[in-house]
């Protein structure tokens, strides 16, 4: 029983960065931008938070938990917003190829994260190749009230840091906004058919920028969660691994619906760590970790065979838009 609870807890914690990433990418893709820079942006979000937190922790002032959360979060949002802006400028304003730009951004972002991570590590003259913001991390990891008093319920639902709930709230909000509001309708229109949206008086550029930057910021929070909560405030180069790509896989798995993304992220999170909880030989572990990708491929194939209009990728995904193209 205990082991099952621990497994679910770990799965949720593993799934949370993916949920941030996929929600961000869904919002981005709904505007027609296939941002393959998301893995890079998540790195940038993470390291920006770490840099902000690092200077705050080392500034000598008395730490309070409000600023301990605010400063890294603000820095992560700023860093990921700037990176997304760069992507938008290149793909929307300068109409560059989205795949190429996204991949370049990922190269840059991962490099950026590891470079500054490495530099900070050198700054503290630490022997270990990692940096640790344990004090700040505590603020991030503070569980909800009554978590310890409510037994299994408390452990399963209340024991996480606030960002786990934030991820769910953002995903639900994104789902509601996309399907129930004018804002969401306009955004989906831009992603489906920018010429039509443009003709309807929707500012295509603004929506593409807005969705991509907000999406990037949400994804950046995934990077922040990973360092500040999941890793107890410890930054280690490349530790974030392929989670950014897993987040992009999740977008497909969730057929571009953020609310399905919530379940999907915990499922992927569970698959990611399943090998720790079942009795398999070492060599089978990677095969289990491969499952999310295989499942995603199967979903991708199924939606293309079924051709149900509602589960297709946004029709203009990956295409630049130029009004006077003839």
């Amino acid at each position: 029983m205990d082991i099952i609870i621990t497994f679910i807890q770990r799965a949720i914690m593993q799934g949370t960065p993916l949920l941030f990433g996929s929600t961000g990418e869904i919002i981005t893709e709904k505007s027609g931008n296939l941002n393959l820079g998301i893995p890079g942006i998540m790195y940038i979000g993470g390291i920006s938070g770490v840099i902000g937190g690092f200077f705050y922790q080392n500034s000598g002032v008395r730490l309070n938990s409000f600023l301990a959360i605010l400063i890294p979060t603000a820095c992560a949002l700023l860093g990921s917003a700037l990176a997304s802006l760069l992507y938008c400028f290149l793909t929307v304003t300068l109409r560059a190829n989205q795949n190429v730009t996204g991949l370049a951004l990922t190269t840059f972002g991962v490099g950026f994260g590891n470079f500054f991570g490495g530099s900070l590590i050198r700054l503290v003259n630490s022997d270990t190749p990692s940096i640790s913001l344990v004090t700040l991390s505590k603020a991030f990891r503070k569980p909800l009230p009554f978590a310890e008093d409510l037994g299994v319920f408390g452990e399963l639902f209340l024991s996480y840091g606030f960002m786990v709930y934030l991820a769910v709230i953002i995903a639900i909000a994104a789902g509601v906004i996309l399907t129930k509001t004018r804002l969401g309708l306009n955004l989906r229109a831009v992603g489906e058919n920018p010429a039509t949206a443009d003709a309807a008086g929707i500012n295509v550029t603004a929506y593409k920028y807005g969705a991509t930057v907000i999406g990037g910021m949400i994804a950046g929070l995934g990077g922040l969660y990973y360092v500040m909560d999941y890793s107890n405030g410890g930054w280690e180069n490349n530790a974030f691994g392929d989670r950014g790509w897993l987040a992009i896989a999740l977008v497909i798995f969730a057929v571009w619906k953020p609310i399905i993304g919530i379940i999907g992220s915990y499922l992927f999170g569970g698959l990611y760590i399943l090998y720790n909880y079942i009795n398999v030989s070492m060599s089978v572990q990677p095969l289990i970790q491969m499952l999310p990708y295989v499942v995603t491929i199967i979903v991708l194939i199924l939606i293309s065979i079924r051709k149900k209009r509602e589960t297709q990728p946004p029709a203009s995904l990956g295409q630049p838009y130029f009004r006077e193209e003839r």
């Binding site: 760069l86 560059a96 730009t101 190269t107 840059f108 972002g109 470079f115 490495g118």
Partner: peptide
């Protein structure tokens, strides 16, 4: 004595410029 990832940053920058100039 900089971090090895410095080259990724440099590569990223040059790519951004070339991608942008196509416009």
């Amino acid at each position: 004595d900089l971090n090895q990832s410095f080259s990724d940053i440099v590569t990223g920058i040059i790519l951004f410029f070339i991608i942008g100039c196509e416009f």
